[in-house]
Deep mutational scan, measured.
Amino acid sequence: GKRLNIQLKKGTEGLGFSITSRDVTIGGSAPIYVKNILPRGAAIQDGRLKAGDRLIEVNGVDLVGKSQEEVVSLLRSTKMEGTVSLLVFRQED
Protein backbone atom coordinates (compact mmCIF):
# COMPACT_ATOMS: atom_id res chain seq x y z
CA GLY A 1 0.00 0.00 0.00
CA LYS A 2 0.96 3.65 0.02
CA ARG A 3 0.62 6.67 2.24
CA LEU A 4 -0.99 9.83 0.97
CA ASN A 5 -0.96 13.32 2.43
CA ILE A 6 -4.20 15.10 1.63
CA GLN A 7 -5.09 18.64 2.62
CA LEU A 8 -8.77 19.52 2.54
CA LYS A 9 -10.07 23.07 2.93
CA LYS A 10 -13.19 23.08 5.04
CA GLY A 11 -15.89 25.10 3.30
CA THR A 12 -19.57 25.68 3.97
CA GLU A 13 -20.41 22.12 2.99
CA GLY A 14 -17.88 20.62 5.36
CA LEU A 15 -15.25 18.00 4.70
CA GLY A 16 -17.67 15.76 2.87
CA PHE A 17 -16.76 12.29 4.04
CA SER A 18 -17.87 9.90 6.74
CA ILE A 19 -15.74 7.50 8.75
CA THR A 20 -16.22 4.09 10.28
CA SER A 21 -14.16 1.77 12.44
CA ARG A 22 -13.73 -1.90 11.64
CA ASP A 23 -12.84 -4.94 13.69
CA VAL A 24 -13.42 -3.32 17.06
CA THR A 25 -11.91 -5.33 19.87
CA ILE A 26 -13.35 -4.94 23.34
CA GLY A 27 -11.43 -2.27 25.19
CA GLY A 28 -9.20 -1.76 22.19
CA SER A 29 -9.21 0.72 19.40
CA ALA A 30 -9.91 -0.12 15.82
CA PRO A 31 -8.47 1.41 12.69
CA ILE A 32 -10.57 4.25 11.30
CA TYR A 33 -11.51 4.09 7.64
CA VAL A 34 -13.20 6.46 5.22
CA LYS A 35 -16.71 5.04 4.91
CA ASN A 36 -17.93 7.11 2.00
CA ILE A 37 -17.36 10.31 0.09
CA LEU A 38 -20.39 12.58 0.09
CA PRO A 39 -21.65 14.20 -3.12
CA ARG A 40 -20.84 17.65 -1.74
CA GLY A 41 -17.96 18.97 0.29
CA ALA A 42 -14.20 19.27 0.28
CA ALA A 43 -13.33 15.61 -0.30
CA ILE A 44 -15.10 15.20 -3.63
CA GLN A 45 -13.85 18.59 -4.86
CA ASP A 46 -10.29 17.57 -4.05
CA GLY A 47 -10.82 14.15 -5.59
CA ARG A 48 -8.00 12.24 -3.89
CA LEU A 49 -9.64 10.71 -0.83
CA LYS A 50 -11.34 7.38 -1.48
CA ALA A 51 -13.71 5.15 0.46
CA GLY A 52 -11.66 2.46 2.17
CA ASP A 53 -8.66 4.68 2.85
CA ARG A 54 -7.40 4.21 6.40
CA LEU A 55 -6.89 7.40 8.40
CA ILE A 56 -3.50 7.45 10.11
CA GLU A 57 -3.23 11.08 11.21
CA VAL A 58 -5.46 14.14 11.35
CA ASN A 59 -3.57 17.45 11.56
CA GLY A 60 -0.47 15.60 12.72
CA VAL A 61 -2.29 13.76 15.51
CA ASP A 62 -1.69 10.02 15.43
CA LEU A 63 -5.02 8.21 15.58
CA VAL A 64 -3.72 5.04 17.25
CA GLY A 65 -5.82 4.43 20.35
CA LYS A 66 -8.44 7.02 19.43
CA SER A 67 -12.11 6.12 19.23
CA GLN A 68 -14.28 6.98 16.26
CA GLU A 69 -15.93 9.72 18.35
CA GLU A 70 -12.54 11.27 19.15
CA VAL A 71 -11.58 11.26 15.48
CA VAL A 72 -14.88 12.89 14.52
CA SER A 73 -14.31 15.67 17.05
CA LEU A 74 -10.76 16.19 15.77
CA LEU A 75 -12.16 16.62 12.26
CA ARG A 76 -14.91 18.94 13.49
CA SER A 77 -12.53 21.12 15.48
CA THR A 78 -11.16 22.64 12.28
CA LYS A 79 -12.49 26.15 11.72
CA MET A 80 -14.49 27.08 8.65
CA GLU A 81 -12.09 27.89 5.79
CA GLY A 82 -9.39 26.10 7.76
CA THR A 83 -7.36 23.25 6.32
CA VAL A 84 -7.48 19.70 7.57
CA SER A 85 -4.35 17.69 6.90
CA LEU A 86 -4.95 13.96 6.53
CA LEU A 87 -2.43 11.16 6.33
CA VAL A 88 -4.09 8.08 4.89
CA PHE A 89 -2.99 4.59 3.99
CA ARG A 90 -4.37 3.03 0.82
CA GLN A 91 -4.13 -0.66 0.04
CA GLU A 92 -3.23 -1.28 -3.57
CA ASP A 93 -5.63 -3.48 -5.51
Rank of each mutant, 00 (worst) to 15 (best):
G1F: 15
G1S: 09
K2D: 07
K2A: 04
K2W: 05
K2S: 08
R3Y: 14
R3A: 09
R3F: 12
L4R: 02
L4W: 04
L4G: 01
N5Q: 15
N5M: 10
N5A: 12
I6D: 00
Q7R: 15
L8E: 01
L8P: 02
K9A: 08
K9P: 07
G11R: 07
G11S: 11
T12Q: 14
E13K: 08
E13S: 07
E13H: 10
G14K: 03
G14E: 05
G14P: 06
G14N: 07
L15Y: 04
L15K: 00
L15I: 09
L15R: 03
S18M: 10
S18A: 06
S18G: 15
S18T: 14
S18Q: 13
I19M: 05
I19A: 00
I19D: 01
I19V: 12
T20K: 05
S21N: 15
S21T: 10
S21M: 10
R22E: 12
R22M: 08
R22F: 10
R22T: 14
V24C: 12
V24E: 07
V24I: 14
T25H: 12
T25S: 12
I26G: 12
I26L: 14
G28Q: 04
G28K: 03
G28V: 03
G28Y: 12
S29F: 08
S29N: 11
S29R: 09
A30V: 08
A30M: 07
A30G: 08
P31E: 07
P31F: 13
I32F: 14
I32H: 12
I32S: 03
I32E: 05
Y33Q: 06
Y33F: 12
Y33D: 04
Y33R: 04
V34D: 05
V34A: 14
V34I: 09
K35V: 04
K35F: 02
N36Y: 08
N36K: 12
N36F: 06
N36D: 15
N36H: 09
N36S: 13
N36E: 15
I37V: 10
I37R: 00
I37Q: 00
I37F: 02
L38Y: 13
L38N: 10
P39V: 08
P39R: 07
P39A: 06
R40A: 04
R40S: 11
G41N: 00
G41A: 03
A42V: 04
A42E: 03
A42T: 04
A42D: 04
A43G: 03
A43I: 00
I44N: 08
Q45I: 08
Q45H: 13
Q45R: 13
G47E: 05
G47D: 03
G47F: 02
R48K: 05
K50L: 07
A51E: 05
A51K: 07
A51P: 08
G52E: 03
G52C: 00
G52T: 01
G52P: 01
G52K: 04
G52A: 05
G52Y: 02
G52I: 01
D53V: 03
D53C: 00
D53R: 01
R54E: 15
L55H: 00
L55Y: 01
I56K: 03
I56D: 08
I56T: 05
I56P: 01
I56M: 13
I56L: 13
I56C: 06
I56V: 15
E57G: 07
E57Y: 04
E57K: 12
E57N: 14
E57D: 06
V58T: 02
N59S: 04
G60L: 01
G60A: 04
V61Y: 07
V61N: 05
D62L: 07
D62H: 09
D62I: 05
L63C: 11
L63A: 07
L63V: 09
L63R: 02
V64F: 11
G65P: 02
G65L: 04
K66A: 11
K66L: 12
S67D: 12
S67T: 12
S67E: 09
Q68L: 12
E69L: 09
E70M: 08
E70D: 13
E70I: 04
E70A: 09
V71N: 00
V71M: 03
S73G: 14
L74N: 04
L74S: 05
L75G: 02
L75F: 11
L75E: 04
R76I: 07
S77W: 10
S77K: 09
T78A: 15
T78Y: 09
T78D: 09
K79D: 11
K79S: 13
K79A: 11
M80E: 15
M80C: 13
M80Q: 14
M80H: 15
M80K: 15
M80L: 14
E81Q: 13
E81F: 14
E81S: 11
E81K: 12
E81T: 10
E81N: 14
E81M: 11
E81L: 09
G82R: 08
G82K: 15
G82C: 12
T83Q: 09
V84K: 00
V84F: 04
V84H: 02
L86E: 01
L87N: 14
L87C: 06
L87P: 02
L87Y: 12
V88R: 01
V88W: 02
V88N: 02
F89H: 14
F89V: 11
F89Y: 13
F89R: 06
R90V: 01
Q91E: 14
Q91Y: 08
Q91D: 11
Q91M: 10
Q91C: 10
E92R: 10
E92V: 13
E92Q: 10
D93S: 13
